[in-house]
Design a protein around this nucleic acid. Structure first.
Lengths: 343, 343
DNA sequence: ACGTATGCTGTTACCGCTAACATAGCCGAA
DNA sequence: TTCGGCTATGTTAGCGGTAACAGCATACGT
């Protein structure tokens, strides 16, 4: 380092500053910094040294405007506070890692209006693609997605009509499968405990599938209980107590997610109930958390990591299926009976 | 709607398209869409109708370049998969909600190099501010932060020297406080169980403070156990078993986070140990999850929501303290003894 | 020697939008 | 009527980069 680093620049640096400091044109600096085109080693060295010394950080805004290319992928999800979407994010990040693409997260809190405005905001940055949870959106959001002219992947759910591509599982089928397993194990007095979220379409579809399969076996839910907000584990405990008090004949508890299921399981064990003999339980998601419980809750893996991975591959244009857009990729969750279903 | 919506635009729309469709200049359209300046009601109506009909989405890239203003706030955090950062995010989002600012999240996985590159990437979009976890960064990252010319808030931790502002708690003090409470309750054979993450400086500082207070009382840790990866709840269980087998004299287990603490608690209860008489436990973070456990784990709230809120206020320039930048705001966690410390 | 391929660097014209200033019409006061 | 002072709109000149092409050595085959 011959010259000392600049300490307090009065304004933010531009290519011109680096070009003047290294005695070449702005274009050449641009080429060096983007590892593009042929530049002689000596020039490259000089430019890099100057850029480093000045502390130059390129302006992607200008770059994106000029090149009409943005390395951002919009990811729009309902929440970060349950275990499921962070894991999807991991799948996305891992896959995007070596593509030069960068995920940008927007959170909707399960509000369609908020989803619409988050989408608008993100599209206004002209991302290279959109990954968005669910198939249900406002009309305006649907229109924006359809017109955006970039790859769109709707994730988690495939029971519906995607705008472009979709990657997910059939929640309806998942509900059905769980019901069938429960019935096959001999349980007959089944209750449902879940979230009261009018816009959680996936939980709704699971319940629909579940009840459909019950109906086919001539059964119906003997009780149901909903909650919203608060600590899921605690709510699971409280709801379970409420249901078992109100409907003592219940011999199976189907939860809309693992967290409340875990709360219910802890409650049942605490009460000394015979699980799964006297009463069975099942949740949904296959969250890692369950591994630490005294007994393993029955659940179905929602393929979260895989969904993120595949969605990102589609955006990055490196998904196995050669086709361009418009594909629906169904993943198949596996039912894990754990220790809370008989047999 | 007199004219039907355009269905398949060959290229993405610009202000010019809207201006032609509504018979005014681009500037006027721009003014209408930004609610800026005086525009007659009739013109505004006409422009909005045209924009809506065409499905125009403004190009913020061009707008930002021209106006030299970007409504983005970079938020750089180590992880999304533990409960802590999502809650900080909630605090940030809530506060930014009505400021026109938008958080953009980058995740570093506790890697300093990754942090540096994520920071570089985000700064290249010229955000209005940066919120970044921790006070320890690579030299290059420090330099970038110092030169960025925008408000920087380092969050979570205040034991060190911030580049600009800082909001957080003293983890060293938190560790000390917990040790003092444990000693006061009469426990003497204390073990530590934590993560093996060389870059989790906050966990390290808590342990340092903890040991410091032990030393002052003439005590030292009788055992310690570290883990990395896997289900925290399960790891807590396994580590606890290992420690209690190896060091049967241990009468207190101090965990570096609530999740492994919860696993340990479940293990102890399962083994029929007398908690907190025979053995005490404590974690850190005050996660909501604990409310659902059969017994409440002792913990310290890390003020996560508040940290996010205050950090965002500083960036938005609406924090109570009138000063501009350079402030260190210390928050004070409360010790919750729960049911797992005697007395 | 000549034409031409090749490697390196510079020039020009935008990308889509907005700040700043310019202009036109209209009102009321002098 | 004339003139300032509004209001509503248009015009001009960039913002900081990059695509595309132009230019100029140097190397090389014939």
């Amino acid at each position: 380092m011959s010259k000392p680093p600049i300490t307090e620049p009065r304004r933010t640096l531009t290519l011109r500053d680096v070009s003047e400091a290294s005695g070449v044109s702005e274009m050449t600096v641009s080429r060096v910094l983007r590892h593009r085109g042929d530049v002689s080693d000596s020039t490259r060295e000089r430019v890099l040294e100057a850029a480093r010394r000045l502390g130059y950080v390129p302006n992607k805004i200008a770059g994106a405007l000029a090149s009409q290319r943005v390395n951002l992928v919009a990811v729009i999800i309902p929440s970060l506070s349950n275990m499921v979407f962070p894991e999807v994010m991991t799948g996305i990040s891992d896959t995007l890692e070596d593509t030069g693409l960068q995920p940008v997260v927007g959170v909707t809190n399960y509000s369609p209006d908020r989803e619409e405005s988050v989408l608008y905001e993100m599209l206004s940055w002209r991302p290279s693609g959109v990954i968005i949870a669910g198939l249900e959106h406002t009309e305006a959001a649907q229109a924006m997605l359809a017109q955006a002219g970039i790859p769109i992947v709707e994730i988690m759910d495939i029971d519906g009509h995607p705008v472009d591509s979709a990657v997910g599982i059939s929640h309806r089928r998942a509900g059905r499968q769980m019901a069938e397993a429960i019935i096959a194990a001999g349980y007959r007095n089944i209750a449902f405990l879940g979230t009261m979220m009018p816009h959680d379409h996936r939980a709704r579809k699971r319940l629909e599938g579940f009840e459909e399969a019950l109906a086919k076996a001539g059964l119906s839910l003997v009780d149901r209980e909903f909650y919203s907000g608060g600590s899921a584990l605690l709510k699971g405990r409280e709801m379970t107590e409420a249901v078992l008090t109100r409907s003592p004949q219940v011999d199976f508890l189907y939860y809309s997610n693992d967290m409340i299921g875990a709360g219910g399981l802890l409650y049942c064990l605490h009460k000394g109930l015979d699980v799964p003999g006297q009463i069975g339980l099942a949740g949904f998601n296959g969250v890692e958390l369950l591994d630490g419980l005294p007994r393993k809750l029955a659940t179905m893996d929602a393929c979260r990591l895989e969904i993120g991975r595949v969605a990102a591959e589609i955006i990055a244009g490196k998904h196995a299926s050669g086709t361009i857009g418009g594909e629906v990729i169904e993943l198949f969750p596996t039912l894990q009976k754990g220790d809370t279903i008989r047999g």
